[in-house]
């Protein structure tokens, strides 16, 4: 089995490309949805200690909106789409101006809209990945949480818990031109999924 603790630079690049393709398609979907240009960051692939994972979105206690999908099929893993609260509120102002109350809370309709946005974006991320690798990826129905980043992300790290104290994350961010919108994708393949990804992309495993 490929050991995720010791991937070569080349293998990390392959995983970056996975993030690139997935998030690229998701950014296009977002851009279509908002009718605005959306930029994407260079994907980062890192083996992060559990403690540092939440730092990527502002720290363990940072309040975020997160959409979670469990991926089954050939490449089991966890997928998160995470937005900081003020960006989610910003998005709601644009999409549901009549519904939105400026009191820091979310109505049922707003949460369900955000959940669906996360679903569309994660769905386009995963389907482009499935096309590219010819692997079967079966996402669960999406589930949304408005809570502390640490509590949310730790949910996606459990599969790594029994193997060590760090997890391999494929992270991509996108932002709108005038920086009024920013979102993060985290794809956390289960530890056993890397072999399958590599094999599907023609990486010879030593």
């Amino acid at each position: 089995m490929a050991n995720y603790n010791r991937f070569e630079a080349f293998e990390m690049d392959v995983l970056k490309e996975v993030g690139n393709i997935g998030a690229g398609n998701a950014a296009t979907a977002m851009s279509t949805l908002l009718n605005k240009p959306i930029d994407m960051s260079v994907p980062s692939v890192q083996l992060l200690p559990f403690e540092e994972v939440a730092e990527r979105v502002g720290g363990s206690e940072q309040i975020v909106i997160a959409v979670f999908l469990r991926v089954e099929g050939d490449v089991p893993g966890n997928m998160f789409f995470i937005m900081q609260e003020h960006y989610a509120l910003q998005l709601m102002k644009q999409l549901l101006p009549k519904e939105h109350l400026d009191d820091g809370t979310y109505s049922e309709l707003e949460l369900s809209t955000l959940c669906e946005i996360g679903n569309i974006l994660a769905g386009s991320y995963l389907s482009s990945l499935a096309d590219f690798t010819q692997l079967q990826l079966l996402p669960s129905v999406p589930s949304i949480a408005h809570d502390m980043a640490g509590a949310i992300l730790s949910y996606g790290l459990m599969q790594y818990g029994e193997m060590g104290d760090s997890a391999l994350l494929i992270e991509t961010s996108f932002l709108e031109d005038c920086k009024s919108l920013e979102g993060h994708f985290f794809l956390i393949p289960d530890p056993n999924s890397f072999d399958i990804i590599f094999r599907a992309l023609g990486v010879r495993l030593g």
């Binding site: 363990s60 640490g150 509590a151 949310i152």
Partner: peptide
């Protein structure tokens, strides 16, 4: 102090 307990 410990922060961000979810299922932990």
């Amino acid at each position: 102090k410990t922060t961000g307990l979810g299922s932990c």
